[in-house]
Amino acid sequence: MIGFLTLFKREVIRFLKDALDTIVPPTVEVALYMLIFGLALGPRLGNIEGMPYIQFMVPGLILMSIIRNSFLNPAYSLFQSRWDGNIADLLSSPLSASQIALAIILGGVVRGIIVGTLVFVATLIFASFSISSLLLALGYAIVVSMAFAALGCIVGLWTKGWEGIGTVNSFVLDPLVLLGGVFYSLDMVSGIPFIEPLTKINPFTYITEGFRSALLGNIETAMFGFVLTIGLGMIFLVLAIMLFRNGYHLKS
């Protein structure tokens, strides 16, 4: 247990010591989105799902930051350790393969939740949004960050260069998140070719919708996204642990 906690702590300290690059930018970015889309353009869009556009955006923006940050932390940390070679310290220690994977994933969860919280606080400057069920919201956020931290772990093992992580982030995660109802509801794009079907088949749409419901305290509508995220998370988690056990790109 001490070994596991030590590695978990290392993973958290790693990004905290680098907060200017890991925590501040996503918070500033979201503040900008709020300013431009929410304050400047929002009023022209009227109400969406019964709330002003700027309020509608808040859950999506928080979710986007959680997904991105919980993904990036394990991906970069793992690849960095492979690149520098100090992954050998872990592989030659008494830590089990699953302990290593879980500690690294948990590091990503902490980053996702910290950034998610800061982003939420930043949005409060621009819009009033009260979370009706903190427990539900937090539970949902933790499950989401677990799932994407596990995915980050997989990518950190798979990639052969630093670019690989950025590529997955920009060409897979970002498009899925942005076409997943962060900035619009399904109703808003009904009838628009290409965008509507893409949004409908995109699992992120339901994860985002679920998170929005979770923040609003609506358990029933949150359930589908929640279950979907758990399912996705289980697949990523099992895969990440299996890759670690097999020493994929870790052992020769």
Binding site: R10, I13, R14, K17, D18, Q80, S81, D84, G85, N86, A88, D89
Partner: peptide
């Protein structure tokens, strides 16, 4: 190890 391997980025 033969190669110098140290967790050197922030510790």
């Amino acid at each position: 190890f033969q190669d110098i391997i140290l967790d050197s980025r922030f510790l």
